[in-house]
Design a protein around this nucleic acid. Structure first.
Length: 426
RNA sequence: GGAGACGUACCGAAGUGGCCGUAACGGGGGCGACUCGAAAUCGUCUUGUCGGUGAUGAGCCGGCACGUGGGUUCGAAUCCCACCGUCUCCGCCA
């Protein structure tokens, strides 16, 4: 959520942002109208309340003297009735304004290229896409041929966009989670967290998934709980409505969770394979920083995510997203795209974003610079470190051999009991 | 799931219709005094938010907040209702 006063006093900034994101700018005019109306009403009702409070004190004083000021009480009754009429009106306008404001996306950083997807900018590449003396296969062809990846039975159990993994692939999935968590905790100084995977609507509101993106989530029936779409939600909401003391900032936390997404708008896209699932595993990185440190923290967080790909020897590139391609809450986003030989393309495997104070304002995440100082909104960041399913996809496609077996990346071998290849008796 | 108790500031906790909300009392923390320094002691300060007015500062004026939301009342932390959470006991259970 943007700062109310910023929207009020600097509409030109908001306008530029909405245009850059390719969004309807009408919200701004509606906001001004509502804000003016709210403040007018508020003044009116607050004046009445001040009068009533003063009169009530007066009643108390007179009663103490043994008098019963019938007239004053009658006057006050009328004041109260007027307040009772106005209060719901104020509440309604406040609610409308909040709803409108919470539907306005975040301002984007000056370094973000303005425009649509075509303006996305590759900032660096790492590694060399492997050459194959044969036609490289898709991960699902490889996985199914090995008998270790089963979409048919997943569909029987659950439906489309689910997968069953067996044996070495199931173990590879587990090893990847372990590898990533160890790298980030032991190597990059993150604190490991094991959070809930069912999340209440307040928390989803705090990170910006609600109210705008309700159709992307799975909601539990007869309950206020949702399946977590990403560990970003529980990790960031760890600090919701809290004031962090000077020594506690910056915060770096990481968690593995299963993630659940309805993929409502993705009909027909990535229908085959493990790229776009209703359920997938992800290791997430979250940071909470002081405002002046957040852009540098985004660079650090992105590098932390890149380290996973480097450790696994997977070629990738880093893409700075344009204003029109960025997420709703983000001020600046780097996507990590891994090379997939089966697809012959770089595909997103991590998205690292700085949300400035946008989530912090919604979620009430604040900090103090010094003991006793006034609390300020912190900045929040997150990134995938990495999406586990897509990492497995990348390993299968990049490490495939002519006979359909998969070489295990060196870094993972200790976690797979020394296994060097999947699919051939060694 | 059933029964009971509880929810007030950074922590503990008092307050049972107005003189009780920065909010008693205790602790913690900041600043100061004493001290060569420290401890002990003493003094003092320690919520946030919205609106108005200032300059988007300081200050001042006002509204709101005693888990959340309603209700009763001229007036609610206090009485009533619903919901949420915590604890204890019982039941069930990986």
């Amino acid at each position: 959520m943007l700062d109310l006063k910023l929207v009020r006093d600097h509409p030109e900034m908001v306008l530029r942002m909405l245009e850059g994101r390719g969004q309807d700018t009408g919200a701004l005019a509606r906001f001004n109208e509502l804000d003016l109306r709210r403040r007018t009403l508020l003044r009116e009702v607050e004046e009445l309340k001040a009068k009533r409070n003063a009169a009530s004190d007066q009643v108390a004083r007179l009663k103490k003297e043994g008098r019963v000021p019938e007239e004053l009480i009658a006057e006050n009754r009328e004041l109260s009735q007027a307040i009772k009429r106005l209060d719901p009106e104020v509440a309604k306008v406040e609610d409308d304004e909040r709803q409108l404001l919470s539907g306005i996306p975040n301002l984007f950083d000056d370094s973000v290229p303005v425009g649509d997807e075509g303006q996305n900018r590759e900032v660096r590449r790492w590694g060399v896409p492997p050459e194959f003396p044969f036609e490289p296969k898709n991960h699902w062809e490889l996985g199914e041929a090995l008998g270790l990846m089963d979409f048919a039975r997943a569909s029987k159990i659950s439906g489309s966009r689910f997968v069953v993994l067996y044996g070495a692939l199931s173990r590879l999935n587990r090893a990847l989670i372990d590898f990533m968590l160890d790298l980030h905790t032991l190597g990059h100084g993150y604190r490991e967290v094991w959070p809930p995977a069912l999340i209440n609507s307040q928390s989803l509101y705090g990170t910006g998934q609600l109210p705008k993106f309700a159709e992307d989530g799975f909601k539990i029936e007869n309950s206020d709980l949702w399946l977590a779409p990403t560990a970003e939600v529980p990790l960031t909401n760890l600090f919701r409505n809290e004031i962090l003391e000077p020594g506690e900032v910056p915060v770096s936390v990481t968690a593995y969770t299963p993630c659940f997404r309805a993929e409502a708008g993705a009909a027909g896209r990535d229908t085959r394979g493990m790229i776009r699932m209703h359920q997938f595993d992800k290791v997430e990185l979250v940071k909470v920083t002081r405002p002046e440190d957040s852009m540098e923290a985004l660079e650090a967080l992105t590098r932390d995510a890149e380290e996973v790909l480097r450790g696994l020897g997977l070629a990738y590139r880093v893409v700075l997203l344009s204003s029109g391609d960025m997420g709703f809450s983000s001020a600046k986003t780097y996507d990590l795209e891994v090379w997939l030989p089966g697809a012959g393309a770089y595909r997103e495997i991590s998205s690292c974003s700085c949300f400035t104070d946008f989530q912090a304002r919604r979620a009430g995440i604040r900090f103090r610079r010094e003991k006793g100082a006034k609390p300020e909104f912190a900045h929040t960041l997150n990134g995938s470190g990495l999406a586990v399913g897509r990492t497995m996809v990348a390993i299968l496609e990049n490490y495939q051999n002519a006979d359909g077996s998969i070489t295990v990346p060196e870094a993972l071998r200790p976690r797979l009991g020394g296994l060097t290849a999947i699919g051939v008796p060694s």
